[in-house]
Amino acid sequence: MTIAWSSFTPVSAFLGGCLIGLAALMLMAFQGRVMGVSGIIGGLFGAVSSAERGWRLAFLLGAVVGPIMWQVITKAPIIWQAVASGPQFYIAAFLVGLGTAIGSGCTSGHGICGLARFSPRSLIAVMAFMTSAVATVFIVNHV
């Protein structure tokens, strides 16, 4: 193991993380909802009221528009470098959807929200997905 000091950005990572936590806190304070993105998307389908669908769509729209506004304001392009293409990319997409539905949450719901309220379920989920993600990257990059 070596540390990639040249790409290490603890300050922006921490500030960005604080904003993500603030968003989670505001969603709980205003709407009484957990900011879990997989759950917010999943709750759009099936028999749900229009009010229920409405706040979910508004939140997701905000998440789409926010980074674009940020890019316009700061005039700094947001870097996006793909690590996968073709089948690997599309299989990944399906597994992310499948796994978060069965595991009841993702990095935001279990990670940011669940850990903040000391949920044992979320702690187990975070340990499970961190372990399998690290193992997957190890296999892809080093085997």
Binding site: F89, I91, S104, V126, M130
Partner: peptide
């Protein structure tokens, strides 16, 4: 389901480096 689902999600996350929040935010 909690553990198996989370493990499946982690595999997908590791394969492409994308979890649901960033997917929406980079649409």
């Amino acid at each position: 389901p909690l553990v198996i689902g989370s493990v499946i999600f982690g595999v997908g996350w590791g394969l492409a480096g994308l979890c649901p929040g960033p997917v929406v935010a980079s649409l």
